[in-house]
C-alpha cells in the first residue's frame, strides 16, 4: 500500500523536532541539567555563606574570667552574642572590630519588661516605674545579674502574680498572709521555696461561715465543694473568677 502523502510530510516535521530535541540534549551543559552537578554547586554555595555569629565556645579562649563569672549566675544560659551581637569579625581581628556592647536602658527590657505572656517566674520589671532614667548596668552586672539589694517586694520577681492580685478582691492581702518565704528564698529562689497553703482549713479561717472575719464571703467549709481543695476551683490570686 502506498504511504499517504500527509504521513510523509508530517514525518519530516516530526523528524526535525526530534533532531532538535536530541541536539539540545547534547548542547546543554551538564551544570544545567545534571542534578548531581547543579546540586553539588548549590550546596557548595550554601555552605560558603558567611558566618556572622561566631558561636559561644570561641569567646572563652580570650574572655575566660567573664565566662567564669557568667556561668555561675542567672545569665548562664545566655550566649555572649545574645547581647553582644554577631561577633565573628571580632574573633578574626579582635583589635580592629569591637563587638556591640549594649549600655542603654532600652536593651535589657527586651527580655525583662513585664509582659503577661512571659512565663511565670521569669524576672520582669516595668521600665517606666523601675528606677527610671538610670541605665540598668549602673545597678546590675549583666554578667552576673542579681538585684543590688535583696528585693523587699515579692513583685520584683513575681510581677505577673502581683499584677493579677492587684486587680482582685485579695488586693489588700499581703503575700505573707498565705505564703511564708524563708530568707534564703531571696538568694536561691529555685532551691528554697516559699510555703503554700495545704488544706481547706487554711481558706476556711476567713471564709467559713463561723469565721470571725467580717468582710469575706462565707461558705459552709464542711460541705462546700465536697472533697476538692479550694484552689482547685478558685484561683487565690484572682478569687471570684473560675
Amino acid at each position: 500500500m502506498r504511504i499517504p502523502e500527509q504521513i510523509r510530510r508530517l514525518s519530516v516535521v516530526v523528524l526535525i523536532i526530534v533532531a532538535g530535541l536530541l541536539l539540545t540534549r547534547y548542547l546543554v551543559p551538564a551544570s544545567l541539567v545534571k542534578q548531581r552537578v547543579y546540586r553539588a554547586a548549590s550546596v557548595k554555595r550554601e555552605i560558603a555563606r558567611e558566618v556572622r555569629y561566631a558561636g559561644g565556645s570561641i569567646c572563652i579562649n580570650c574572655h575566660e574570667e567573664v565566662n567564669e563569672q557568667k556561668k555561675k549566675g542567672y545569665h548562664k544560659t545566655l550566649a555572649c552574642e545574645t547581647c553582644h551581637g554577631p561577633s565573628a569579625k571580632h574573633t578574626e581581628d579582635p583589635s580592629a572590630v569591637k563587638p556591640f556592647a549594649p549600655r542603654e536602658r532600652k536593651f535589657c527590657p527586651l527580655c525583662h519588661e513585664y509582659n503577661p505572656s512571659r512565663p511565670t517566674g521569669f524576672p520582669q520589671i516595668t521600665a517606666t516605674a523601675h528606677n527610671p532614667l538610670k541605665p540598668c548596668i549602673t545597678c546590675h552586672n549583666p554578667h552576673d545579674p542579681v538585684p543590688p539589694q535583696v528585693p523587699r517586694e515579692c513583685s520584683a520577681c513575681h510581677a505577673e502574680i502581683a499584677r493579677t492580685k492587684a486587680l482582685s478582691r485579695h488586693a489588700l492581702l499581703e503575700c505573707t498572709t498565705c505564703h511564708t518565704a524563708p530568707p534564703k528564698h531571696k538568694q536561691i529562689p529555685r532551691s528554697v521555696r516559699p510555703t503554700k497553703p495545704e488544706s481547706r482549713e487554711f481558706c476556711a479561717k476567713c471564709h467559713d461561715k463561723g469565721s470571725p472575719q467580717k468582710t469575706a464571703p462565707k461558705v459552709d467549709a464542711a460541705t462546700h465543694g465536697e472533697r476538692y481543695l479550694c484552689w482547685e476551683c478558685h484561683y487565690p490570686h484572682m478569687p471570684g473568677e473560675a
Binding site: 499517504p4 502523502e5 500527509q6 510530510r9 508530517l10 519530516v12 516535521v13
Partner: peptide
C-alpha cells in the same frame, strides 16, 4: 500545507479519517 499537492479523493478521505 508543508508543500503537499495531493488533492485526490483518497487523500481527502484520509484527511477526514485523520
Amino acid at each position: 500545507s508543508l508543500f503537499s499537492t495531493d488533492t485526490s479523493e483518497p487523500a481527502l478521505a484520509f484527511d477526514r479519517k485523520a
